[in-house]
Amino acid sequence: MINAYNFAFFDEGSKREIRRATLKAIALPGYQVPFASREMPIGRGWGTGGLQLTLSLIGREDVLKVIDQGSDESVNAVSIKKLVSDTTGVQITEHTSQATIIQSRHRIPEVPLKKEQILVLQVPLPEPLRYFESSEHETKKLHAEKEYSGAWLMLFEQIMKYGSMTTGADHPVMVHGRYVMAPSPIPRFDNPKMDENEALILLGAGREKKIYAVPPFTRIVSLDFEDYPFEKESFDGKCCRLCGSEGVFLDELIDEATGEVYYQCNDTSYCYEILNKDEKAGVN
């Protein structure tokens, strides 16, 4: 732990401002609360919004997990973990079930979250209406008036063009029947996990200076149409080549030697846990 820094990097005033915004965000599920995003010693777009949330929350007793697109070991995840651990001395884990704070980019872990946990999601583009409305003043007005026909039209146009909702990641959701929200670039596979989740989910956008929240047990509905219902990515009939898991988000990979397509868990710590469990079971 480096003592030259404040605990959790920030001065108390910076933490207080983020904390006030966070509490407001929890009281207004899905509403983007502006905050005075700070400069961070990591590049913008590398999760500074999520990092600021994590630093404002964290205490000495916390156990932190950081994942980037399913991996605990990516350069981005490692540098975030190093900054937090250097300035707080908290314990770091790769086991989802052991973490009290999980900061993630692009995924919600496969292991179901618990009541004692907070999931912090890094957000590059918090405004789900930005795709068709460039003015912040206008999107704020649309949210204020609950005028979301543009969001539906955007989805409808995609259906017309591609024959299905090919939104890929960041498929917009309706929160508590009031706000349309960008769930951050998680795959559609993870959208249903947000609905009535046990854990508090906080979302932070550093560059866009917004914090928003999904409290536990909050209704989250992915936008769709009766004729074109929301569908998550399907991995039917496929399983992880390493651990054999089905029903998880799989990465499609190509064996360079044989040219064969195979699949592997995107959530690597989940994959290792299943593998270790199998090994132990094999020994007994």
């Binding site: 605990f7 108390e12 509490l23 964290i58 205490g59 000495r60 929240a213």
Partner: peptide, 20 residues
């Protein structure tokens, strides 16, 4: 301790506000 004890108060406030 204004750093650690107020962090603890804040987290309790987060807990109670996110789980009324």
């Amino acid at each position: 301790d204004v750093v650690h004890d107020l962090q603890s108060v804040y987290r309790k406030l987060v807990d109670s506000t996110s789980r009324p």
